[in-house]
């Protein structure tokens, strides 16, 4: 009887250990996603870094000036002549660069770049949906506000 009880406990403990280890194994790995090849990034942008250093040392210079001077640094690169072009997706979503969408406008911007590049019709629908949702939320909020205000005023 005692041996059977011990065996039951042992089984439960073993099951618990296995499930903890298994869950841990399943959970592990997400942290690995938060890494990138730093050397590769530095290497890829090395020529742009050189150009940036040159531009910062010469703050009034523009790309047109460099092209007119037939600057070797610029000639080797296919530089986009405007600050607002989305080279990330190959075309500018709504004419605005990925810097604005991705870095400046956070998650909403990233969603828009992804949406616009993927399906323009869906994007329009999503925008309309967001607007309708916001309006509906505002309407509910206004009604609740007035109900609350009236009940306070009544008392």
């Amino acid at each position: 009887m005692l041996i059977n009880l011990n065996l039951t406990y042992m089984k439960k403990i073993l099951l618990l250990i296995v499930s903890v280890v298994f869950t841990g194994t399943l959970m592990a790995g997400n942290a690995d996603l938060f890494s990138y090849d730093k050397a590769k990034v530095t290497d890829e942008l090395a020529s742009l870094q050189m150009l940036e250093d040159f531009v910062i040392a010469n703050p009034t210079i523009t790309l047109t000036d460099l092209q007119n001077q037939e600057n070797t640094l610029v000639n080797e690169m296919n530089l986009i002549p405007t600050g607002f072009y989305n080279s990330m997706m190959g075309e500018p979503p709504l004419g605005i660069s990925s810097f604005i969408w991705g870095c400046v406008f956070g998650i909403a911007g990233v969603a828009i770049v992804y949406f616009v590049a993927d399906d323009k019709e869906e994007t329009t629908k999503a925008f309309k949906g967001c607007v309708v949702g916001t309006l509906a939320y505002t309407a509910v909020y206004v009604v609740l506000y007035f109900v609350a205000w009236n009940s306070v005023a009544w008392y």
């Binding site: 531009v55 190959g90 990925s98 810097f99």
Partner: peptide, 16 residues
Amino acid sequence: YTVKNKSDGASQLIVG
């Protein structure tokens, strides 16, 4: 701010 961007065949530098 400075933006350095490199995609297939094109580069972009924005300083401002």
